[in-house]
Amino acid sequence: MTNPRWAIDIDRDQITEARIVDEAETTLPEGAIEVAINLYAMTANNVTYAVFGKPLGLFGNDQGYWDFFAEREAPGRLPVWGFATVSRSNHEGVPVGTQLYGYYPMASHAVLHPGRVSAHGFTDMTPRRSTLPIIYNQYQRVDALGDYRAEDHDYWPVFRPLFLTGWLIADQLEDEGDYAAQQILVASASSKTAIGLAHALQQRADRPRVIGLTSAGNVAYVEQLGLYDEVVPYDAVGSMDSAVPSAMVDMAGNPQVAASVHNHFGDALKASIVVGKSHWDANDDAGQLAGPPRQMFFAPGRSEKRIGEWGPDGFRQKLEAAWLGFADLAPRLLAIDKRTGADAALAAYDETVAGKADAKTGLVIVP
């Protein structure tokens, strides 16, 4: 690609169909800013965004993830987490050169409409985003982040949003008395959200046992993370003690794994929480499941609950302290695989959708 401005369009119905498109520079509306995206992460979480991109009522208002950066009649633009720098500005409160962390399209540039501008950042007020969860619409000034350290820069977009989700799941488990479970089964234990959850659970003195479920090929890697009390391959779930009260947190949404756990533990399974759908192409027909109904975990809803209870500053302080406790561990968990340009971005997306991304690396794109 010779054009420095590009984006990746994705078919909303067939997420494997994606292509690079040129993006011309447009006139910047009054009050808007343009950002040049500096670095973003590509993880299995982004596949979940693509799978749930179409309006499915996921946000309770007939909107999906595609609605953040594309109109309904246009191809999908996948949301990603990363850093950007303001390249043009028609907003006096957000000058050129301001560095931001937040939610962007898989592209080289994006136009945002800042509102509620403060020393910490702003909320994007693009009309189609106004009824979407506010946590996705908030952009934070890098120099105002209390837990940002330059040495963690590349790990931020890889781990920070997924660590937040894992931390919120751990908070819900504790809030619910762990659903009376004596052990937490974490399916897709090598995933970054699972790693965040396991680390957060480790901080509790009174926690249940934490058991990582993973593929046979990932057992050694998950064991060496040192975050789980035990690691069990999927094909050995049937050898576990089925009488132990358990709760499952399913990061990948593979119905066959869910069926093996549900049907093995039955009534001893006290809760079954689904977090993601990175196994988007797995056969959903797993038959009747024993045990409890599966429930979807929605991180924005949990965060909004805690912000309401703790206040924005209290929430931020708790999250910052938790992240700093994890950040030192991140470089020991995986290596950064940094790729540059539009072609590399498309290849990274294709690789992740195909389930070929290496769990031992953090894939980041420099547009």
Rank of each mutant, 00 (worst) to 15 (best):
P79F: 01
F163K: 13
V111K: 05
R160I: 02
P105G: 03
E176R: 09
R128L: 13
L132V: 02
T131D: 08
V80P: 04
T98Q: 05
G93K: 05
V158M: 11
D152G: 05
D171N: 15
L185K: 07
E176G: 12
Q99H: 15
V142T: 11
W156D: 09
I184V: 13
R160Q: 14
Q99S: 09
S130V: 01
L145R: 13
V94I: 07
H91E: 09
Y139K: 01
V142C: 10
N137E: 15
H109R: 05
G115D: 07
T123G: 06
I169N: 08
P79M: 10
S130W: 12
P105I: 00
F83A: 02
W156S: 02
G115E: 10
F122L: 06
F122N: 09
D154K: 05
N90R: 06
P114K: 00
Q182S: 05
D143L: 06
V80Q: 03
L100T: 00
R160S: 13
I169D: 06
G166D: 15
N90H: 08
E176M: 12
I134A: 08
D152C: 06
F163C: 07
Q99K: 06
P133S: 06
H113C: 05
H153K: 05
A150F: 15
R141Q: 10
A180F: 15
Y179Q: 11
N90C: 14
D175N: 15
D143P: 15
D154L: 15
A181C: 05
T98D: 08
N137T: 04
H91W: 09
D178A: 03
G166Q: 09
G177H: 13
P95Y: 14
Q182P: 06
P161I: 00
L168I: 08
M125T: 15
Y139G: 00
P157D: 01
H113W: 08
I169P: 02
E176Y: 02
F122I: 01
Q138M: 12
A110G: 13
Y179I: 03
